[in-house]
Computed example of a mutant assay.
Amino acid sequence: MTGTPHVVSDVMTQTVLALRHGAAFKDIVKALQRWQVSAAPVLDDDGRVVGVVSEADLLHKEEARTAAPAGYGQGRSGPDSPESASVTAAALMTTPAITVRPEAPLPEAARTMARHGVKRLPVVDADGLLQGVVSRADLLKVFLRGDEDIAEEIRRQILPHLFPDSAEPVRVLVRDGVVTLTGRVPDTALIPVAVGWVRGVDGVVAVECALAGPPRRPDLDPDLPDAGRVPPHRGRAHRLPEGSGGS
């Protein structure tokens, strides 16, 4: 397929919250609340992503603290307590970080999120430096693409390459991301290929295919005479005598 599918760098958020590995517990809580995010990547001194701290990590720490034996850690509690202030991002983070590259196709990012059960992925370059963050909401942006834009890509970048010699143009209708293909094509073996390529177009939700091959011509029996031709009369013709009325 000649169309260029969207990649992570097309939809990722570039201005993101990142934490230094020495960030204190209460500062992390404040930062997540201020940025209204549920997780943030943790960077080392060189700016490389070494882990991720999420709200779940913070809650696990609080659960462990409140489950301590009676008399242990009594007094101030919560993110402003001395104990919480001494905990850093390096101690809280989940490591190694699950990341994705900027040039990765969107389906790859979606599979990575699903496999690891996360909602956001730090985007890193070949050196591990943070480039941005991609979320589930970012991946869904492609489905906001207009129907006519999707149809035009299919007409221009897919059909001419698969069916250049089609006697009649393949008709493309897109409604709410659902693509319907109708018409006749010279090679039915390419129909599954067309469906696969169309399904891979950004913004396509589903494909309904009603493509068919060329009209079939009836098979003529070679032993039968051609239509419209009178077979030659075999044998000698019987001639009536002159003057006979044929009665």
Rank of each mutant, 00 (worst) to 15 (best):
S81L: 02
P79N: 03
D202R: 00
L140W: 15
E153P: 03
G47W: 04
P214E: 07
G200C: 03
A151P: 04
A114C: 13
A126C: 10
P82A: 06
V185C: 02
A237G: 06
K61P: 09
W35F: 09
R239A: 08
I154Y: 05
E62D: 13
L240G: 05
D27Y: 08
S38R: 15
V124M: 08
P107M: 07
L240V: 11
L121Q: 02
D165H: 14
H233C: 12
L58D: 09
P105Q: 06
G203M: 00
L106R: 00
A189G: 12
D187F: 01
R234C: 11
A91F: 04
G51M: 11
G196S: 08
G245S: 15
A167P: 12
R136G: 06
P186C: 04
S86F: 08
V205F: 02
L181D: 02
R229S: 14
A167D: 14
T95E: 12
R199F: 04
L130P: 05
A70T: 13
R229H: 13
R111N: 10
E62K: 07
L129I: 10
R175L: 11
H60V: 15
I191M: 03
A39Q: 14
L140I: 14
K141S: 06
S135L: 11
D223L: 14
I28H: 02
V118Q: 11
S135I: 07
I150N: 01
P241H: 10
G196E: 10
K61I: 12
W35R: 15
R239F: 07
T13P: 00
H116V: 09
D57H: 12
T94N: 05
W197F: 14
P69K: 09
P96W: 06
